[in-house]
Design a protein around this nucleic acid. Sequence first.
DNA 1: GTCTATAGTGGGATAGAC
DNA 2: GTCTATCCCACTATAGAC
Lengths: 177, 177
Amino acid sequence: MSQPSPRLAAIVATARTILENHGREGLTMRALAARLGMQAPSLYKHVADKDELEALLIADALREMGTALRASLDGLGPRRPARRTAVAALAKGYRAWALAHPHPYRLATEGTLPRDRLPVGLEAWTAAPLVEVAGDEDRARAIWAFAHGMTILELDGRFPGGADLDAAWDRGVAAFA
Amino acid sequence: MSQPSPRLAAIVATARTILENHGREGLTMRALAARLGMQAPSLYKHVADKDELEALLIADALREMGTALRASLDGLGPRRPARRTAVAALAKGYRAWALAHPHPYRLATEGTLPRDRLPVGLEAWTAAPLVEVAGDEDRARAIWAFAHGMTILELDGRFPGGADLDAAWDRGVAAFA
DNA sequence: GTCTATAGTGGGATAGAC
DNA sequence: GTCTATCCCACTATAGAC
């Protein structure tokens, strides 16, 4: 594992800022270069292509999500919580991270995951807290589908204006407890 | 309500074919015109812009989804089924339609819904079977989120290769029964 | 490692003649 | 309602000089 050059780290950090502020479509090689005070072609000395840059951003997002999920469980204290308590905590942490970082969340969860370009084991590491709490993989997948569905539908403005999304989340958490 | 011209109907039908075969990105005004044996600018005599064309396709998809959901319930016979039975039937019909028409499903469920350009009441009509079966709107939203999450994650290849998705669906259906 | 220049691709949309 | 001609935009990526 070689350390990334500081220059590359700066590029990724700036790309993340643009992603947060302007979404995936706003993240162009030109915009990124301009913000770094360089020309777009120069970026290709640091990154093979745009897909590689996106993969780096996805990896960052997955690491942050995994950290957020673990922090949610840590907040419950040292004793092993009831499953419903744990699922509720994970759901809360999941939703909170996604709403705080909608564009990185989309990048990391929509479309095909570039598994070839991600660190080995990262995807599983991110999901591990949920798998552990759910008890088995089938339930974990169902809970994840519920959480992702609620999140992406909320981000896309799919629920009616007056919808009580807290209540819908509670229904799902209760169902899977 | 004026009837659409037969020409417009043909344009939408051809657009649907391209969408089914090549996805949203494959549906360009040029490709559509070529398939119709005309030039791209001519399309603008029938449609204001590409967004309007997409809205027509979304409306078609919503009508088909609503029809498919109703057919799923009709298949259960004249007697009022138990909720779990009804939810299972809706889930099966929902997933089947989406897998049979992945690109129209994506178009109709991903991103912002152009409500201004859709027939009034269509969105609610599509969702009505689920709302009725669920009993209340919070549960309906939770079930929809689960179904959409399962569907879109499956379409995006997000589950591991060996995942038993039938089992995950069953878990969700059972949870919401 | 940065630059300039530019290739190559693709897209949505309009003007005006017929 | 269709055509031709065309504009404008934006993007990724490469070549070669410095």
